[in-house]
Amino acid sequence: MLSRICTLTRTELYKLLRQRLFYITLFLLVAVVVLSVLSERLFPSTKNPINGFNPLINGSINGFRFSSYLILIIGSLLFASETTLGTLKTIFIAPFRRSEFVIAKIITLFILSVLFTFIIELLSIGLAFSVYGFSDIKDPTFVELIHLSSSEILLYTAYSFIHIIVPLITVGLMGLFISVLVDNAGIAVGVSIIIYLILDTFIAGLYENLSSFLFTPYLTYYLEPIKNITDGILEEIWKFELINRAFGFSKQDISLDIARNISVIKSFIVPIGYSAIFTFLSIILVSKRPS
């Protein structure tokens, strides 16, 4: 079974690498990250001196927001394009289980998510460091008390990037699930984007209580504290928030600690839960569908 899935994944990646769409996607992603990081240089704000962490985080957040749409579109096309082209009937005649075919597509989405994350991470850190440099962040009022070293923030940022892979894959899996439901590739992409916008903008934006049960807010969940810090909203609580979010413990009182630990767990459990549901439904639907 493993060798069949490996073969299928290799052919999926081969098909992806042979399409212009993939290279356009990479180019757009790089362009968004570069422009976001360099925006401080291109359109200088009043901040003085500029700490590289601010452009780094802006570039990363914009990059991840944008990459979530790219992954969504690629996920939507992974299955629906096969239906539109009519290639499914040729593939399904090969000696594979249909579930293996879906799993190969999911692995492809995972590889793409990791690739996008590394591109955003390396590009934003490298560019921000070389253009602006990194320095420690201190609260002007409580310099001794509140002092985040640049290595501490970098470590946390790297951790955030790794975590973001989970909700990023979930977005792609939602696209894949919709593409299994909708036979036409164009309609699948359109429907996916509309549903994603509804989840991300309307439901998560309007109903704060509901947002923690959606997977979309977790895309930038770990980056927001650093954004607040680098934007100058430096409170002691954020230091603990950083540590707490990253490692699941806190020096705060127990009730706050529990509440925060729950949100750390939730930030993993919610996207993984959605991913499991989308994967399960996609496999069931593909196994049952006529070709």
Binding site: T7, T11, K15, R18, L85, T90, I91, A94, F96
Partner: peptide, 19 residues
């Protein structure tokens, strides 16, 4: 039906790999 962005040889090679 085949993948239009691949050549005839590449399409058959891809299906051969699936075997």
């Amino acid at each position: 039906t085949f993948y239009p962005y691949l050549s005839g040889r590449e399409n058959i090679s891809l299906f051969a790999r699936l075997r």
